[in-house]
Write a protein that binds this DNA or RNA. Structure first.
Lengths: 263, 263
DNA sequence: TGCTTCGTTTCATTATTTAAAATGACATTT
DNA sequence: AAATGTCATTTTAAATAATGAAACGAAGCA
């Protein structure tokens, strides 16, 4: 079992500040179902003495993490504050999917010993933004930064399948390749979305096969694809099933690291 | 009704937990320009002893508010953590007007191809609670969650103009800016109320102009402002008239969706 | 009026934070 | 190869700041 956010710290650790932890944990009580709490409710729920809870809540409010709605002298409610909007947005802007995905890609690369790629969309094209090479003698050495049309290769196709319909249509219109039938492409994209992964055989390179799974962000949008590729002969039978399962898990782990939550 | 409550707490207050405040303030150092900090940098910047900063950072990391990237034994960097994404999203979900306004904002954004913002009042300040970016190369990228004084920018000014008289007076008293003449501000606020919209040129950013219209709820209270902003050169002549007309309509649509009815 | 329920404050006690100094691991310089 | 410097981390006794039982005051209820 691979846990992808290994916590280094135990709660009782001396090297932490207990007050900070107590305060931050209070924020978790403010959920979609229970967005409002009174001092008394929080104190009971968190098993803290009322004055302690009071001071923690007041501190959180002072910093904008909570909002206090005082309706009368002895009826105050707390809600999450707008400071969290600001910070949440900052995180979203700062997330560099490459950095987050890299360790997981390396792990997957060691396990499968095949080339692992991270692919995104920009300007109607697929772009390989990172890779981990396999250690095999005969190996695929794709260049990071390579651009590719969205209809060719497992990663690009997967991304195309998850584009908004209008964007997808725009891309499909640009396919001028004589051998490609756009109605068949559409059918395949539909299948890719349904089965949750994309397969390509000999599309990017002769004799190589690729398998891709989607990476989701906290908004449940597909932001990238993780692709495993190598010699077609190594992508058959039980081996293929194993590659698929490992890749699916890795994509899931990276998604979680990006804040994706299944609810 | 636009809620209005001035902050009740001073920093030195006994009724707060200093450790919590110190920790939360550290998060503010992680901006777009400086998204990464080492322990040493944070300790210097926050003027805290290294071990103290260390424990605060470790506690924040333990709760997912920070992410530690340990590259080697003596090279660790901290970034904002995905927990903030989760909490930010929870706050966003709790602001109902966002959900209602979003589709209309997107529609307006497509029509005008300029940045659209949704602005409200809290704690005597304007807060940008949502945005739709334009697709132009040169575009305004304002941050959601940003606070701004109520006398600067079309959205804030419009909200200020529609505050209750006593609240408006309180805000105007806090204006200590040497170049701002409060009697002229009052005159402008009166005009804004009369003409039904607010204009700002170069107030939030040099070279940008903003146009704002009020959003009313079922009680006929102004609950938010919708603001369109972009390069001043694009806000002139017939173009400005078109922007005003489209924005006015959108504000009207959102108001209707909130239950506002003209009798 | 008396009783209860809140949020808030008080204050003596004590547990937790504090920060100087030391440590160990690595990198760079001599 | 030894010495120096730099960093994150751990240790320590000292000091401060958090603690929580109790009390307070304001509001609602009976």
């Amino acid at each position: 079992m691979v846990s992808f956010s290994l916590l280094n710290h135990r709660e009782g650790d001396i090297k932490m500040n207990q007050s900070v932890i107590k305060a931050l944990k209070l924020l978790d009580y403010f959920t979609e179902d229970t967005p409002e709490w009174t001092l008394k409710e929080i104190a009971i729920r968190a098993e803290l003495p009322k004055p302690t809870a009071y001071r923690l809540l007041t501190s959180l409010e002072y910093c904008g993490f909570l909002r206090k709605i005082k309706q009368s002298e002895h009826d105050s409610r707390y809600q999450l504050g707008v400071k969290l909007l600001e910070l949440g947005h900052r995180v979203a802007d700062q997330i560099e999917i490459r950095k987050i995905a890299k360790p997981f890609m390396e792990q997957l690369g060691e396990r499968l010993n095949e080339a692992i790629h991270l692919v995104t969309v920009e300007g109607g094209q697929a772009i390989y933004i990172d890779k981990v090479d396999s250690h095999r003698a005969l190996r695929l050495c794709t260049k990071v930064g390579k651009r590719s049309p969205l209809y060719s290769g497992s990663g690009p196709k997967l991304l195309l399948a998850h584009l908004q319909e209008d964007e997808q249509a725009t891309v499909l219109q640009t396919i001028s390749h004589p051998f490609i039938d756009s109605s068949r492409v559409k059918a395949e994209l539909k299948l890719i979305k349904e089965q949750g992964f994309a397969l390509s055989e000999g599309e990017q390179d002769v004799d190589t096969t690729g398998v891709s799974y989607p990476i989701y962000d906290y908004q449940h949008s597909v932001v990238a694809a993780i692709a495993v590729s190598g010699l077609t002969s190594r992508f058959e039978g039980d081996n293929l099933l194993r590659i698929q399962e490992e890749t699916r898990k890795t994509a899931q782990q990276i998604s979680s690291a990006l804040g994706y939550q299944i609810n």
